[in-house]
Nucleic acid binder design. Structure first.
Lengths: 116, 116
DNA sequence: CCGTATCCGCCTTGATACTG
DNA sequence: CAGTATCAAGGCGGATACGG
């Protein structure tokens, strides 16, 4: 999301949410981590996304305090993510958005076919 | 939001929501229209946004069926927007997101000051 | 298995100026 | 009051390849 030219408005809850959780995959990542899909490899299998992009979004989620990252420095590298309380607080919202989307999938499909 | 290289996934409710309501001001526009701020001039006063950008986002909201647009072709042009049932169905979600943002404003503020 | 360095395309937002 | 045409900027997602 474009955000630099106009200063970020922390006075609006909607913008707070958008600024923190912009990014195409962030909410999905949080959702999957909540479902015990905690490792990068597994997450990548769930959502077909470029590794670099996924890592960037995960890094931001860590930075903002939505998830914690645990790196095990074993011979075969191992990484696990886990939701923080802040991350957990998003789950109800994610579920609501997901449900709304499922109920209104037809709208998007109509819009897409109409675009041609 | 960048969305072209990977085909849009209508199978995921979160993406349905995101695709339909990407855009920096769409949710705010819907919210203000629900509060009887229906005219372009008034909306522009509420959110300081470029007219062209606002119109584009409103056009998409119309196209996707979230709002209806009424143009009165009087001497002094007059336009009013109104939520459709689909638009109204978003209000609970918008309220939830807004509340979450208000409750967690500090997170964004911390993130912003940290960025320097 | 996991991370990152580099390169690229383009979409979105925003500013300005002008017309009906 | 409302709409649009044009111009500019840069952030973001994606692909590839390489290193630990």
């Amino acid at each position: 999301m474009y955000k630099k030219k106009i200063p970020i408005r922390t006075d609006c809850g909607l913008h707070v949410f958008k600024e923190l959780l912009n990014g195409k995959w962030k909410l999905m990542l949080i959702y999957y981590i909540s479902e015990e899909v905690k490792r990068p490899g597994a997450l990548q299998k769930k959502i077909a996304v470029d590794r670099r992009v996924m890592n960037k979004q995960l890094d931001e989620l860590v930075k903002y305090g939505f998830v914690d990252k645990f790196s095990f420095d074993t011979k075969i590298p191992k990484v696990e993510y886990q939701l923080t309380a802040l991350g957990v607080s998003l789950l109800p919202l994610i579920i609501s958005l997901e449900k709304w989307g499922e109920n209104n999938r037809a709208v998007l499909e109509a819009a897409l076919s109409e675009k041609q």
